[in-house]
Design a protein around this nucleic acid. Structure first.
Lengths: 161, 161
DNA sequence: TTAATTAAGGATATAATTTATCTGGAATAT
DNA sequence: ATATTCCAGATAAATTATATCCTTAATTAA
């Protein structure tokens, strides 16, 4: 079980969008070039972010994407769920109902005990993702990357907006 | 991203094996019948448990599987990892290295900041799975299932060992 | 007004993974 | 001996992931 590569792309793109100056947009083609990934397919990931209301798009020259709200109001979970969906990583197929001993229906009223454990673990995963915002990521990058690297990246981005 | 159905099957099978009387084995065919799943494919999941050292197999008539150690020494994570593998659910493709601004290699010494967050969430998921044992599951079932259901299931199992 | 640019969505294609099924070999109990 | 069972490997079908292409509509700049 591995997350789609679109999750990785979406997170990195969102991180870039968080660095855009107020009022500017960055186009799919630039995001694709910056990350070295296919523009057409990346576009699907960005559309997912757009549909989830995490980014805003505008058309035409100088168009593209920007964050729909402040970076500290967008979590990793928001982005992961926009791309992967909100359904649990564990799907219960209710195999207990195949039990050859004919059991009363009342036994199946509560969700399957196995599923409950798996869902709790899924929730722990999501809780962790919910606890980190794009702003936290930006802060971490600021702290760890050398100043000249930050500046080089920033001027690359500014040359495209 | 959804776990394989084999994970669900393996967990339910392990739960049954935890209820076996000392010294007895239950065959793949019986586990498949009990859960209403294809025997040949379930066999692959059980082989995974066997390769991971979680269950012991014995050949011939009256053969089959039993737990390799006490139910309180086998966690959900053991079983999930036996079937799904131990690799993280997030795979970092190091797309930051595609960055068009030629950056020094030293920038990439530390793992990618995005990946670190994702891996931490993965670890939270595993921690939760590690905290629940087959014995905990058995206890929960004992607590929630009516006595007659437990007895009916038990005699079905005993008729096959 | 015109031409270029852009996101959005649908259709299609390819690759990879999941979900099986089948076979034969080796071990084991009766 | 014979039937049973796990195991590993080969193969096939179905589903999902990973793209690519094309059309449409909106927007901007010249």
């Amino acid at each position: 079980m591995i997350l789609r590569n679109q999750v990785e792309w979406a997170l990195h793109c969102a991180s870039i969008l968080a660095a855009l100056p107020e009022g500017t947009y960055l186009a799919t083609k630039d995001l694709a070039e910056f990350h070295g990934v296919p523009k057409e397919y990346l576009s699907k990931a960005l559309q997912a972010l757009s549909n989830a209301g995490l980014v805003e798009a505008t058309l035409g020259p100088r168009g593209g994407y920007r964050l729909a709200r402040a970076a500290d109001k967008i979590t990793f979970l928001d982005i992961v769920e926009a791309v992967e969906g909100k359904t649990s990583t564990f799907e219960c197929s209710e195999i207990r109902q195949n039990n050859p001993c004919k059991l009363e229906k009342s036994v199946f009223k509560k969700p399957c005990q196995v599923a409950r454990v798996m869902w709790k673990a899924d929730e722990a995963w999501r809780r962790e993702l919910r606890s980190v915002s794009l702003q936290d990521l930006a802060d971490q990058l600021m702290k760890e990357l050398p100043k000249d690297v930050l500046e080089t990246n920033m001027s690359w981005i500014l040359s495209r907006v």
